[in-house]
Design a protein around this nucleic acid. Structure first.
Lengths: 135, 135
DNA sequence: ACCCTAATTTAGAATTATTCTAATTCCAGG
DNA sequence: CCTGGAATTAGAATAATTCTAAATTAGGGT
């Protein structure tokens, strides 16, 4: 809650638990839920707790190392924050896919003009039928 | 149950409950959670149940009458599906704002090319600091 | 009219998802 | 060593959502 956190007295960094969770997310092929992450992390750190998973995810999010996405159904999912990218979600089977479009500066500028937000990132979400469902 | 209701029955229709929920969403200024919708709907249909809210929201979503959005924190939110529009979310206070950019056909085409999805809609999400938080 | 059937609503239980609490551990500095 | 703060843990508590089973509704046939 305190603002302006300093680095006094041995500031905590990437603890083993946080590192394990980050590792799990980075090694995963797909977007994992917190409970999937918990199961995977527990295989390398058997004593890890659920709360630590959520705490660590929060920490890693704030550190910009992972990214949280959620799309209505079920639990939030997490992916490695490689770089800005976009998501496509199948309205039939719920499958999620990543893709990447170069978001033009003009697009960001236009969004900022409409919202007066100080921009951090702009993401696209494509809703539609995935290749498997489009038949 | 209430007596003397309309002409609903054994086929997929806009039942009084669904209509009430749609009304609530359409009359609301902001994006409501399911529990807020439940509270509001109950004021006009006191016997309505939580399950019906969720069932109706699902129905209305599939009918394209309402739209569900969720952004990691807390519950899903619902807004009237007026027309395609975009969302801005404040990374500091969580505030959600609507805006609208003309999504160019080229952008959709490019997204389709990358994902091979059959497109239904393309939404933009701007993350950043809202006017109140940007100081 | 009267029964049959299918869709829907209802109440509440059950299941998930996430956050909170309190006790404990770990580590760096004095 | 001792102390204090951050992190972890287990499990309880809360919140969000889905499920179940019984009751209700009305349309369509007979």
């Amino acid at each position: 809650m305190s603002s302006g956190n300093g680095d006094q007295g041995g500031a905590r960094t990437l603890t083993p638990q946080r590192e394990a969770i980050l590792q799990v997310i980075r090694e995963s092929e797909n977007h994992m839920t917190a409970s999937e992450i918990f199961e995977a992390a527990r295989r390398v750190l058997p004593s890890i707790s659920y709360a630590t998973v959520y705490n660590s995810l929060k920490y890693l999010k704030e550190a910009g190392l992972v990214h949280e996405i959620s799309f209505g159904n079920g639990a939030s999912r997490y992916d490695r924050e490689t770089e800005r990218h976009d998501h496509a979600i199948c309205t039939s089977c719920g499958k999620l896919a990543d893709f990447d479009l170069t978001v033009t500066k003009e697009l960001v500028r236009a969004a900022v003009r409409k919202t007066r937000f100080k921009p951090e990132s702009l993401h696209l979400t494509l809703r539609g039928l995935c290749p498997d469902c489009r038949e």
